[in-house]
Design a protein around this nucleic acid. Structure first.
Length: 1051
RNA sequence: GAGCGAUUAGCUCAGCUGGCUAGAGCGCCUGCUUGACUCGCAGGAGGUCAGAGGUUCAAAUCCUCUAUCGCUCACCA
């Protein structure tokens, strides 16, 4: 073992060993209680930042802890296609101004390529952090499987009339060339100007109203000028008309409550097409709405806009309008808030446009309660009725504030990179939704070779049992399902089955070549090996069809199936491996995914595999699909269940939904968390998780936000390389609290790097002791900690103490982790390992011949206890100290019961050793103050009846002697001319053969102060009468002791 | 404008439903150290708990106000 822990040489190897073990895969059939966290999918736009690192650390700790305490854990990894963000980055990347410079298909191809690269990098970074994720279930918000979920959700909402198309005021991002939801607009304070204009009365009187605006370019869209109803001018002016500056169009003067008489000129120009408030006024007064700014940010070529401005940018137009003219009065500086697009950082223009909205206040019948409700209500009830708990709790208020003000959610986007809205229009503009087609997938029946566990040849046919199975299937389908079409693989065993069913149902069989089974080549006819499916071997040894060919075939097969339609269900008769390949083709299309899917259906029986309802493109060629795509948060909102197979009923869904904890940064509470709550409850009837844990923003050590411009940013991968992933994890987790900023600097990280190294070296010491005592296996030692064993066990004072102390720590750590207080758990572990275990216990074992069993056992459990927080170093040590292949995470987390000694015994063990620590520390202080390094004589008077006297004071004296580096010698101690006498609790007195005036004086004054305080407290009648008796007694006792000590000091 | 949070050692922060002499990490000072660890060991200095008032026998902790800082939401042209 190296003298210092080298994280670089171990971390990657350790992670690979976790992956290879297969233990990261969750088992949906497990009887253990589930614990599920959906990983907030990072955007595929970039790379991991420290916020992600904090998220990974926190969630990984939860997962590992739950796993070690007997849960079937599932932590699903994934990435988000991040519609607008990605599209922006790709545009920039390609040096394009506008996506229209490319065809839709080409552009999407570019996005795909970009996303793939970023994805691979993100996955690598996630692994670097040590995250215990189930990679076999990795998902992507934009893969085929999630697309099916998105379409199903859209359809469900549409059919419940919760999705509507409306011509409303929306936020238009000129930069992103798309509409945004209200939440995607960021308001920023901007130093702008207020421009005043003359609106002349249309009666040629030369009189005018002075109107102030921050956006002169919208003047052309004015359709009224409004005054407050109580405005003195109103009586005279109402019913009259004014001329819109520059174009002299006549518009009415109206009154409306919205006008603030105290603001500006108290006269408001009304532009219903370009301002949400004006829109409302327009509605109230039935004003026309004139759009004068185009979606590209230029002035629109319409009759209300003077010709010379057609196609001119709005900035340019404004510059022209503020030049001195007949209408322009003045400019005043004015700070106000302007909306910016949260992704493209450009100004958001309020516009009128037809878009798709989710109606949050529209009533629908909730099947779960059979009552009418709204999406808004369901979302509110989640927290109000405590179905969902938010940590820290104060965010519940923020949550309500958001929902209470929630308006309909605009979900359509004009960008290309995203789920296309599953709506088609005919020539008359009627709306058509995707068609629903039921499919029943079934596996062929048994063959002779199959029964003998021999890999089947392509032309194997059914045996008698197989034909029986086919009959059974046929009977079942005839009775229970409305099958109207049958498609089969061309291989005899499937075709035969299909034909038997077809005969019964009076149908014909369509052969689909692509459905045929994977050909294992030379392995056909060879016996199956239970551990390695033949398919895996065939791919490995390259004996038959290649993976590329299989995948390609599966993709074509799936596409073909999607084209089939029938009134009833379509029966698809095929094989295990092609089915698995089809599943893989709907997800990330990797070989790993395929193998994982293949393993999942390894035990599949003959007959029905699954039934699905597929949403298909309408057949009518004249229909046109909506050009828009869905808000990226629409697909994210489905994450907790779309990752588990929804809308299909799957084993994963049964076992792992609802999820348990949703952990993320508070900045996406509204964007994501609230919407998952809303959609989860709506789609599944269950809230998607019971706990929301929100971490804070990672900032630098000074509490400043990390940013590129400040140059205080830290790249997680860089610091992982420098200090190790464990150190980075610890520094992101310990000393933080949920919802508050997470301060991080290299100083902090290096502090935890030091801790990791301390742990490593403790392990090194333990290994030496193991070697010396001939122990080869850290996990081989019997449990010595239960009371029965303990009584037979010759435990030294230090052994007793560390066992008792560890029991307390184990209890506290479990308690903290159960309440997700990771920081406190980390703190407890840190101090136990460093202060108690290393600085006292190991030191004690070095000074005495100790029982190595205690050392080894405690250390073994220290590794388990700290594994969730620092998995790499603990796993490395675990491997170093053992000879088996079990992983640390497979061990059971230390429990209080393992260290439960008799209470009195335990308290004595703790208290006695603490007396030793106190005495030793005092002696050390005295020696240090006196600058005395050599051994000094002391004498200990144990007094009567105290704890240590009851035990074996000789052993304790030995401890003090060695720790304090003193001689135990009464005569020598007394022989010194001056001695220092110190009194400890329980009447223990230590005489030190050394005079230290300073110490003496300090001791005295401290005691005097204490006595004064205590006396004052006891003289207070209110205290002695009202405070709990226990406290008063304690105060009295303390006073007596202090007085006693002082007396002895003086003598 | 409304809401939320913060203010404790030089720095970054713990301190739960009030009750031991207010703690930790880093930094600082003084020593030490040839086998677990200089990514170390031992010891030390350093705090009127932002300010004012109140409740209480008792307040860093609960309440009110003030000040400063941070965040969120809403916005008037």
């Amino acid at each position: 073992m190296d003298k210092a822990y080298d994280h670089n040489s171990s971390e990657d190897t350790i992670y690979e060993s976790w992956e290879r073990s297969g233990e990261m895969t969750a088992n949906a059939q497990s009887k253990k209680p589930p614990f599920v966290i959906p990983l907030p999918p990072p955007n595929v736009t970039g790379q991991l930042h420290l916020g992600h690192a904090a998220m990974l650390a926190i969630e990984d700790i939860m997962i590992r802890y739950k796993r070690m305490t007997g849960h079937e854990v599932l932590w699903i990894p994934g990435t988000d296609h991040a519609a607008i963000a990605t599209e922006n980055v790709v545009l920039k990347h390609l040096g394009m101004q506008n996506r229209e410079e490319m065809s839709r298909e080409e552009f999407l191809e570019e996005c795909k390529k970009f996303a793939q690269e970023k994805h691979d990098r993100i996955v690598h970074q996630v692994k670097k952090m040590g995250a215990w994720l189930d990679w076999g279930r990795e998902a992507y918000t934009f893969d085929e499987a999630r697309h099916e979920a998105v379409n199903a959700m859209f359809k469900k909402l549409y059919e419940d009339e919760l999705i509507v198309r409306g011509h409303r005021m929306i936020n238009w991002s000129v930069g992103a060339q798309s509409v945004l939801s209200d939440d995607e607009v960021e308001y920023r304070e901007v130093e702008g100007s207020l421009y005043h204009y003359k609106y002349f009365l249309a009666d040629n009187s030369g009189e005018y109203l002075e109107v102030a605006t921050t956006r002169p370019e919208t003047i052309f869209g004015d359709t009224a000028v409004a005054l407050h109803p109580k405005d003195k001018r109103a009586k005279k002016l109402i019913g009259k008309k004014v001329l819109v500056p520059f174009t002299e169009r006549k518009v009415p003067i109206i009154t409306d409550e919205h006008v603030d008489p105290k603001f500006g000129t108290a006269t408001l120009k009304v532009t219903p097409a370009h301002d949400p408030n004006d829109f409302e006024i327009g509605e109230r007064h039935s004003l026309p709405k004139i759009q004068v700014i185009d979606f590209d940010g230029t002035m629109r070529a319409c009759e209300q806009v003077p010709q010379k401005f057609h196609g001119v940018t709005r900035e340019h137009c404004r510059a022209e309008l503020v030049k001195s003219s007949k209408y322009f009065v003045k400019k005043k500086s004015h700070t106000h808030n302007i909306g910016f697009c949260y992704r493209s950082e450009t100004v958001v223009e309020p516009m009128l446009s037809p878009q798709w909205f989710v109606s949050v206040e529209k009533e629908f019948l909730d099947p779960k309660t059979n009552k009418k409700t709204t999406l808004k209500k369901l979302t509110q009830e989640a927290v109000r009725e405590k179905h969902v708990k938010i940590i820290p709790q104060r965010f519940e208020k923020t949550y309500f504030q958001w929902i209470d003000n929630l308006r309909d959610w605009c979900i359509s986007r004009q960008i290309w990179w995203g789920h296309r809205i599953p709506v088609w229009y005919d020539k008359a503009g009627n709306i058509h939704l995707p068609r629903e087609q039921k499919f029943i997938f079934a596996r062929h029946g048994q063959t002779e070779n199959g029964a003998k566990e021999i890999c089947q040849f392509p032309d194997d046919s059914l045996n008698e049992e197989g034909r029986k199975q086919a009959q059974e299937l046929a009977d079942f389908l005839k009775k229970k399902k409305n099958v109207t079409k049958i498609i089969s693989s061309p291989l005899p065993r499937a075709k035969e089955m299909a034909e038997i069913v077809a005969k019964k149902l009076n149908l014909s069989v369509e052969i689909l070549e692509e459905l045929q089974e994977f050909d294992a080549g030379d392995l056909c006819g060879k016996p199956r090996i239970p551990e390695t499916p033949t398919t895996e071997r065939a791919l490995q040894e390259n004996t038959g069809e290649s993976f590329q060919s299989l995948l390609k075939r599966a993709e074509t097969c799936w596409q073909e199936l999607q084209k089939r339609e029938s009134d009833g269900a379509i029966l698809v008769v095929g094989h295990r491996t092609i089915f698995a390949a089809m599943e893989a083709s709907k997800k990330d299309k990797t070989k790993e995914r395929f193998l994982a899917e293949r393993r999942k259906i390894h035990d599949m029986n003959f007959g029905i595999w699954k039934e699905i309802s597929l949403l298909q493109t309408p057949k009518d060629k004249n229909l046109r699909q909506d050009k828009d795509t869905l808000d990226t948060w629409f697909s994210s909102a489905l994450w907790p269940f779309s990752t588990l197979g929804w809308p299909e009923k799957t084993a994963d869904g049964e076992k792992f939904y609802p999820n348990d904890v949703l952990e993320t940064g508070w900045d996406i509470l509204f964007f994501w968390v609230a919407r998952m709550v809303m959609f989860g409850r709506y789609a599944t009837g269950e809230y998607p998780f019971h706990t929301v844990y929100l971490h804070g923003l990672v900032c630098d050590e000074k509490g400043q936000k990390m940013s590129k411009s400040k140059g205080n940013g830290i790249d997680p991968i860089e610091v992982i390389d420098e200090y190790g992933a464990d150190a980075v994890r610890l520094s992101l987790v310990v000393g933080t609290s949920p919802g508050n900023p997470i301060p991080l600097g290299k100083g902090k990280i290096s502090g935890y790097r030091n801790f990791v190294n301390k742990l490593w070296n403790a392990g090194r010491f333990v290994k030496m002791q193991m070697e010396a005592s001939g122990t080869i296996e850290i996990n081989g030692k019997p449990q010595i900690m239960n009371l029965d064993n303990y009584n037979h066990y010759n435990a030294s004072p230090a052994d007793q103490w560390i066992i008792a102390k560890f029991g307390k720590v184990v209890e506290a750590v479990n308690k903290k982790l159960q309440s997700y207080d990771i920081s406190s758990a980390g703190d407890l572990i840190y101090h136990f390992i460093w202060d108690d275990f290393c600085n006292w216990y190991i030191e004690a074992t070095k000074k005495f011949e100790s029982n190595t069993d205690t050392l080894i056992s405690i250390f073994r459990d220290i590794l388990k206890l700290s594994h969730p927080l620092c998995p790499f170093v603990t796993e490395t040590l675990w491997k170093e100290l053992s000879r088996h292949n079990e992983l640390l995470i497979e061990q059971i987390f230390p429990k209080r019961e393992d260290y439960q000694l008799e209470a009195e015994y335990e308290e004595n063990a703790l208290a006695s050793f603490e007396v030793v620590q106190k005495i030793v520390t005092k002696i050390r202080t005295i020696k240090s103050t006196a600058k005395k390094q050599t051994s000094i004589p002391i004498h200990i008077n144990w007094g009567e009846g105290n704890l240590i006297k009851k035990h074996h004071e000789k052993q304790y004296e030995e401890l003090i002697k060695k720790f304090g580096e003193v001689k135990l010698d009464l005569n020598l101690a007394r022989a010194n001319t001056d001695t220092t006498m110190i009194t400890f609790d329980d009447g223990i007195t230590v005489t030190i053969g050394l005079s230290v005036i300073k110490i003496h004086e300090k001791e005295k004054s401290e005691l005097k102060n204490q006595i004064q305080t205590l006396r004052a407290r006891l003289q207070n009648k209110g205290y002695t009468e009202k405070a709990p008796k226990k406290l008063v007694d304690q105060t009295k006792k303390e006073l007596l002791e202090a007085e006693e000590k002082l007396k002895k000091l003086k003598s």
